[in-house]
C-alpha cells in the first residue's frame, strides 16, 4: 500500500495497542509462512543435485545451486516413452489456452452486452440457462463431449480441447460480463444510439474500452482454469497433443529406477509459471482498470 493511502489513518496509541499489533503481525506472518512453505521446498529442491537430495533433509537449503534439473525438466525428461522434456507440451498448452481464453472472453463479453443492453424477450431466461452451465460438474459432460468431438473429427486434438474449454467457459465469462454491464449506465448506450452507432460500433468503441476491469478478471479466471485443467486434457487428448498438466503427471509417473525429485519439482514449477505470469502482468492492469473506473463518467 502506498504511503499516501495509509498516512491519513488515525490509530490508537499506547503499549497495549503496540502489543496487539505485534501479535497480529506475528499470526499473519505464521500463516504467510505456512502458505509459502510448499513453494519454498519445491524451489529449493529443484535447485539441488540428486546426490544432495539423498544426503540432506527435505528442509535444508541447497548448498551448491544447480539448474541441471530445470534444464532436464524442460527438454530431456521422459514423458512416457518420449524424452523431450516438457517443452513440446508447454506449446500445446499455449496453443490451447490462448485461443480458448480469447474466444471465451470475447463471446462472453458479447453475450453479457446483449443480455443487459439490448434486452429481448426471454433474455432473463436465456441468462439463467447459460448460468446453469456454470454448475454442471466436469465429469458429467465427459462422455457426451467425447462423442461430440468424435463426430466433429476433433477427437484427440488441441483444436478439440479449445472448443471444449470455450464452450465450458462461456457460462462463467457471460456471468462476469453480464454483472459488469448491469452497472454501466443505460444513458451512455442511449446517447450512442442517438449519435448513430449500432450494436457492434457501440460494443467495440464505447462499451469494450470501459470494461477493462471485467476483461482482466475474466482473462485471469479463464487462463487459470484452462491452463490448470487436467481432466479435459487427459480425457480428450492423446500422447503428443497432451497439455502440460497431463505431461507433468506423466513426468512424475515415468520412473527409471531413481525418483528424480529435483526434476519433478522443477517441472511442476515450470508448468505453473504461466499462470503466475498472468497474475502479475494482468494484476497490474487490473488495479489500473479499477482506479480508472472509479472516476465517474
Amino acid at each position: 500500500m502506498r504511503q499516501r493511502s495509509i498516512g491519513g489513518i488515525v490509530r490508537p496509541k499506547g503499549w497495549h495497542n503496540v502489543l496487539m499489533r505485534g501479535s497480529l503481525f506475528l499470526v499473519l506472518g505464521l500463516f504467510c509462512l505456512y502458505y509459502l512453505f510448499p513453494l519454498i521446498v519445491m524451489a529449493s529442491t529443484s535447485l539441488k543435485s540428486l546426490a544432495e537430495i539423498r544426503e540432506g533433509t527435505l528442509l535444508s537449503l541447497p548448498r551448491a545451486i544447480t539448474f541441471e534439473a530445470w534444464g532436464k525438466a524442460w527438454d530431456s525428461a521422459c514423458v512416457g516413452v518420449r524424452c523431450d522434456g516438457l517443452k513440446p507440451f508447454m506449446w500445446n498448452s499455449v496453443a490451447m489456452a490462448v485461443p480458448a481464453v480469447l474466444l471465451s472472453t470475447t463471446l462472453g463479453a458479447i453475450n453479457g452486452y446483449a443480455l443487459t443492453k439490448w434486452r429481448f424477450p426471454g433474455a432473463d431466461w436465456i441468462f439463467a440457462m447459460i448460468l446453469f452451465g456454470a454448475f454442471i460438474p466436469f465429469q458429467v459432460i465427459l462422455l457426451p463431449m467425447a462423442r461430440t468431438l468424435g463426430q466433429l473429427g476433433l477427437a484427440g486434438t488441441v483444436t478439440g480441447l479449445i472448443l471444449v474449454h470455450t464452450v465450458y467457459g462461456l457460462a462463467f465469462t457471460t456471468l462476469f460480463f453480464r454483472n459488469f454491464f448491469v452497472g454501466v449506465s443505460d444513458g451512455i448506450l442511449q446517447a450512442a444510439k442517438v449519435d448513430g452507432a449500432g450494436f457492434f460500433r457501440i460494443f467495440f468503441q464505447i462499451v469494450l474500452p470501459m470494461s477493462i476491469p471485467a476483461i482482466v478478471v475474466t482473462v485471469i479466471w479463464q487462463f487459470t482454469q484452462i491452463w490448470n485443467d487436467f481432466l479435459f486434457g487427459v480425457a480428450f487428448t492423446i500422447g503428443d497433443s497432451n497439455p502440460v498438466t497431463v505431461a507433468l503427471n506423466n513426468v512424475v509417473n515415468t520412473s527409471t529406477g531413481v525418483k528424480e525429485y529435483n526434476v519433478d519439482m522443477a517441472a511442476a514449477i515450470i508448468a505453473a509459471l504461466p499462470t503466475m505470469l498472468v497474475y502479475v502482468v494482468a494484476g497490474a492492469w487490473f488495479v489500473r482498470g479499477l482506479s480508472a473506473g472509479a472516476v465517474k463518467g
Binding site: 444513458g187 464505447i206 470501459m210 463518467g297
Partner: peptide, 8 residues
C-alpha cells in the same frame, strides 16, 4: 447523467 463516453 450527461452520459459522456468515459474512455473518450
Amino acid at each position: 447523467s450527461y452520459a459522456l463516453y468515459p474512455t473518450k
